[in-house]
């Protein structure tokens, strides 16, 4: 998959995961992995970008005697999910068109 596209999709997946409640790095990876392949090092810049654009915020909490960073979705983040779903209506239309054009048996 195009890396740019993949990053964009993972961003929204992260937001979706967080919409169910605040979470931390390792847990986010576990939750997303079944949907799209992701590593710790790819998640890192994505979390940074989401934080910088105000779609999530970060707080630290003690866990088993060490600190763990938790990520929490913001209202802007929730808005971004809605926006994604709206934008991708067009993409889905195109997908269906192409899929129809190729004939279902070829896919």
């Amino acid at each position: 998959m195009d890396p740019q596209l993949k990053r964009g999709l993972i961003e929204v997946c992260v937001l979706k995961v967080l919409s169910a409640g605040a979470s931390y790095g390792y847990k986010i990876i576990k939750d997303i992995s079944p949907i799209v392949e992701i590593s710790e090092s790819t998640l890192y810049p994505i979390l940074r970008r989401l934080e910088n654009s105000g779609l999530l915020d970060v707080y630290t909490r003690e866990h088993n005697g060490r600190l763990r960073k938790y990520y929490r979705i913001t209202d802007a983040g929730t808005g971004r999910i809605a926006e994604f779903l709206d934008e991708w209506k067009t993409v889905m239309n195109v997908y269906n068109f192409i899929r129809g054009g190729m004939g279902n048996d070829k896919i």
């Binding site: 931390y24 790095g25 390792y26 847990k27 990876i29 590593s39 710790e40 090092s41 890192y44 088993n64 060490r66 600190l67 763990r68 960073k69």
Partner: peptide, 27 residues
Amino acid sequence: SISYFSEIIDDRMEDGMDEQEAVSSLG
């Protein structure tokens, strides 16, 4: 970056991996 990866390794170990494994699985 250091605290991010440190946390991931700790979490993997808490999840049952040994230290070497937790590190090597990062790639």
